[in-house]
Design a protein around this nucleic acid. Structure first.
Length: 325
DNA sequence: CATCAGGGCCCTG
DNA sequence: CAGGGCCCTGAT
């Protein structure tokens, strides 16, 4: 890395007002997700690096409100002062990434009587689907998660960030920041392979190339419907059905993007929905579609994150068993 | 020591 | 549309 640590000392703040109800902690922190060194979280406080419009910015969010009267203080740290338009555009970008303007009322009304979902819905009331990454960054994460263990994924991402990313120092924290796609677009596959990311080297280079060339552009994809977005994403080399549905939900907030289920998630949903182990994926998908309809992935997200939050508070034996490995 | 699976995907037949 | 190969690592 990036010998040089970026000192982001200039700070500007703003107040965000998410649409109520809003659960700060469950929105900014997803205990079931793969943690990356670009993010830090403590109850009520959250930090991340952000590459935006060619510059690196340190983001801090603080919860200064309640579920009913949400207030989130946004502090932006940068090496050079941010212009007002830059600050506004980052504010809008974060509102999108954290789904702050979402109206969850119809969802809550429709599903609060559901016997399985109801309790999770009440405990996490106001939680949003959120994603701190750009589409490109998310694809990088999805790539290192493929066909390996969490431990190795962690190593691969760390090595990539050390080699091509930056370190940022702000608000007393040091976080890594992603590289811009173009710095990998021209890198040789051989050089990437030397970092022990295996066959992913080819995909990483080609995805970086595609994004740099404008073959895939995030902003316009945000308004595409689910099928169109899926088709566009599948044109990327190394991006298949499993990665795509994660992207459709996390990055593009399609609340119904629940059409694929991976083996480890299958086992967790089997427990949560049927109270037993290894229910066939097809049955799980049919059940969530029937019960939760167009909200099925958002509902599943509530259930999933809720059990992970509770597990953290008070270990859940069967979950601990499934996660061991 | 050999073998295999791990939070996929591509390519071939 | 099924199945082999892919990089590497740790478990057995």
């Amino acid at each position: 890395m990036a010998a040089r640590v970026i000192e982001a000392t200039r700070v500007t703040t703003a107040m965000l007002r998410p649409r109520p109800p809003f659960d700060f902690d469950a929105t900014v922190h997803k205990p079931s997700h793969f943690p990356t060194p670009t993010i830090a979280y403590e109850p009520g406080r959250y930090w991340q690096s952000l590459r935006w419009a060619g510059r690196l910015v340190g983001v801090r969010l603080r919860n200064l409100g309640t579920r009913r009267t949400p207030r989130v203080e946004l502090a932006l740290y940068s090496a050079a002062p941010l212009t007002a338009p830059a600050r506004d555009s980052i504010e809008r970008e974060l509102a999108w990434r954290f789904d702050l303007d979402a109206d969850l009322a119809p969802f809550c009304r429709a599903l609060r009587a559901d016997p399985v979902l109801g309790p999770a819905l009440r405990r996490r009331r106001g939680m949003r689907v959120s994603c701190p990454y750009s589409l490109y960054e998310y694809l990088v994460v999805a790539l290192v998660l493929q066909n390996t263990t969490v431990r190795r994924s962690t190593t691969m991402l760390r090595v990539l960030l050390e080699r091509y990313g930056r370190r940022m120092h702000f608000d007393g924290r040091e976080l890594c920041a992603f590289w811009p796609p173009r710095s990998l677009a021209l890198t040789s596959e051989t050089e990437l392979r030397a970092l022990k990311i295996g066959y992913r080297a080819r995909a990483l280079r080609r995805i970086s190339e595609a994004v740099t060339a404008g073959a895939v552009v995030e902003q316009p994809m945000r308004v595409l419907d689910k099928d169109a977005a899926r088709a566009a994403l599948l044109t990327l080399y190394g991006v298949g059905p499993a990665s795509v549905w994660y992207v459709l939900f996390d990055v593009f907030h399609h609340y119904d993007a629940f059409d694929v289920i991976s083996p480890w998630e299958q086992r967790i949903y089997s427990r949560l929905l049927f109270g037993r182990d290894r229910v066939a994926p097809g049955r799980i998908l049919a059940a969530v579609r029937r019960r939760w309809g167009c909200w099925r992935m958002l509902a599943a997200h509530y259930l999933f994150e809720d059990i992970f939050w509770r597990h953290r508070q008070q270990p859940v034996a069967w979950l601990a068993e499934l996660l061991r490995s």
